[in-house]
Design a protein around this nucleic acid. Structure first.
Lengths: 154, 154
DNA sequence: CAGTGTTTGGCATATCATGCCAATTTAGAG
DNA sequence: CTCTAAATTGGCATGATATGCCAAACACTG
């Protein structure tokens, strides 16, 4: 690992997590460098993969995608084939924003984005429950957002 | 709602969700417009709040923050005061990336980012379980990522 | 304190954002 | 189908920004 982040790097990361489209000149001012070395540091952070990507965060409620739900999945069996088939299928659904295999109580967790509860129910019964490896699903529906951040505490 | 998104707007949103730092010239080419009206559309999408913000997405594993866990919380009581106190406290912890109040089986769901299981355990016992309103916590630990996207299917 | 390697700041140039205006396209009414 | 008005587009001029290069400052080692 060639990275040893110093205080300036951390300030850069902090700033770009808050505003990924900030101009390099503005960023340089904020972290106390001139534009030239600032840009070089940013490029290095990108090249080493510390900065993975830049994204625009959309407001789902303004796009008819106001409902986020968390679903826990239980498999019928936990063999590799079952798991692979599940993964392949899940990756195709745009409704599934995130999906992880877990150890412990359940076998997988997903975050799913849909229009409303009705649309979610349709997705669950028409698609999720029809994946052969899926035995059962339990859903938790967020009613209110207390905190929502994509930032890592660097 | 003054927004009626057409096909070009959707292409803009799709592109900026994949690369939020794309230059306007490049974006214009990709969506089949000249830079001038393209920029105007982007600005409108920002002003109306469809585009909420631009962020840099970091790789937690390269920053010593490799573990993401999901925790379900049960409260002792569900009155407004309990809830508010919980919310206030949770918002202060940088480890807590997301937190929602839920209806159904549990009372709240959180996504928590830490260094490793040991650090999580410390956070749970030293902080989470000491919030007076919290009765119990169940944790699901992702072992493998099947899908991870911040994109909305526009 | 000299030498070496790293990081910085400034500068020149190419690319880009931005605001304005004329031209084109679209939508609606007669 | 035609005319008109409104909305949207493309091109252009200007100011700001990114980018690569070089010399100077700095940090570390022997």
């Amino acid at each position: 690992m060639p990275e040893a982040l110093d205080a300036v790097d951390r300030r850069i990361l902090k700033a770009l997590q808050r505003n990924g489209r900030m101009s390099n000149v503005e960023l340089a001012n904020e972290v106390g460098l001139s534009p030239s070395p600032c840009l070089r540091r940013v490029k290095l952070l990108e090249d080493t993969g510390v900065i993975d990507q830049y994204v625009a965060v959309l407001d789902g409620s303004k796009l008819g995608l106001g409902l986020t739900v968390f679903a826990r999945i239980w498999f019928k069996t936990q063999d590799a084939e079952t798991t692979n088939q599940f993964a392949e299928t899940v990756r195709k659904y745009p409704e599934v924003a995130e999906c992880y295999l877990t150890t412990g109580e359940c076998d997988a967790i997903m975050r799913i984005v849909t229009t409303d509860l009705h649309a979610y129910w349709r997705f669950q019964s028409d698609h999720l429950m029809r994946i052969p490896s899926v035995q059962s699903v339990k859903t938790d529906v967020p009613m209110e957002t207390i905190k929502r951040s994509f930032e890592l505490p660097v």
